[in-house]
Nucleic acid binder design. Structure first.
Length: 269
DNA sequence: AAACAGATCAACCGCTTAGTC
DNA sequence: TGACTAAGCGGTTGATCTGTT
């Protein structure tokens, strides 16, 4: 594709936004919306490129932006989702209402990365111990699918659910799951092409079982993950295929497969 | 109080994707 | 079907803030 000329070449302003520029942009968007970012600065009388306007609006000026520190629940959600999705910040942001991809990216690089690394290390340690002593148990656990497991997965997938976990009963109803799915059907982070190629599998993903938050924080991850894997079955594999996150995230899936002893499962790579 | 280091975050850059002709 | 455009996304940068010596 052709590249849009940068602001500098067009003689446009760069750098930090002034309050006046912010005001102009807000007023213009409130009045006219933003059907065309490229044309917007000209229409609004801003000496900025459309790209810059879009970024400013999305990351800072949007009325639904939630500013301030991230809650513990939000941080956990980011760590969990990053584990599953990798550096797909917009997908992660889609699961955190009021938070932007840029903000999440920054938070990740500043402190969550370290936090996650520490947790991962801890989990790996726990995995090693469990593999040595409980290898038979994993196979049994992987067959023992419970309703509780289903609930836990959804909880982990849904920040709405997890963030309010203190107020919710430990039993998640089907209705709750449906609501989450309906509200966030696009936010399950599925690329459009993936959706078309794997429509059915997406459906199975969207009706994912639920995982307790302890799934992510529990140091005995291996036990939980073995259950999870068997529960998700083929749908899980297809989900892994759909996402091209074969980096750090694949270690996660690999660990799940290895610890579950799921020989029959087809690896997505 | 000054200097420095590390952390934070807004903004930019360049690549990819989706849509249109 | 290929060329082109606009929008979206993730990586990176650099200015500013904050804590430490």
């Amino acid at each position: 594709m052709g590249r849009a000329p940068c602001c500098e070449k067009m003689g446009l302003k760069k750098g930090p936004w002034t309050p006046e520029e912010d005001r102009i942009l807000i007023v213009h968007i409130n009045k006219h919306g933003h059907p065309n970012w490229r044309a917007l600065p000209k229409q609004a009388g801003l000496l900025r490129c459309g790209k810059s306007c879009r970024l400013r609006w999305i990351n800072y000026l949007r009325p639904d932006i939630k500013r301030g520190n991230f809650s513990k629940e939000e941080e956990e959600t980011i760590i969990n989702l990053h584990d599953m999705l990798g550096n797909r910040w917009s997908a992660i942001a889609g699961r955190l209402p009021g938070r932007t991809d840029n903000e999440i990216k920054n938070v990740w690089h500043t402190h969550l990365k370290k936090k996650a690394a520490a947790v991962l290390k801890q989990n790996q340690k726990a995995n090693t111990n469990n593999n040595n002593s409980n290898s038979d148990d994993h196979k049994q656990n992987s067959k023992a699918t419970t309703a509780h497991d289903h609930q836990s997965a959804e909880s982990a997938m849904s920040p709405q659910a997890s963030s309010s976990s203190d107020e919710l009963s430990s039993v998640t109803t089907g209705e709750t799951n449906n609501n989450n799915n309906n509200n966030n059907s696009d936010q399950y982070c599925m690329d459009k092409h993936v959706k078309s190629d794997h429509e059915q599998n997406v459906d199975s993903f969207e009706s994912f079982p639920v995982i307790d938050e302890s799934f992510w924080t529990d140091t005995s991850l291996s036990e939980n993950s073995s259950n999870l894997t068997s529960d998700f079955g083929g749908g899980l594999n297809e989900f892994a295929i759909g996402h091209h996150d074969y980096g750090g995230g694949m270690d996660f899936w690999y660990n799940i497969l290895v610890t579950s002893g799921a020989d029959s499962l087809t690896l997505p790579f």
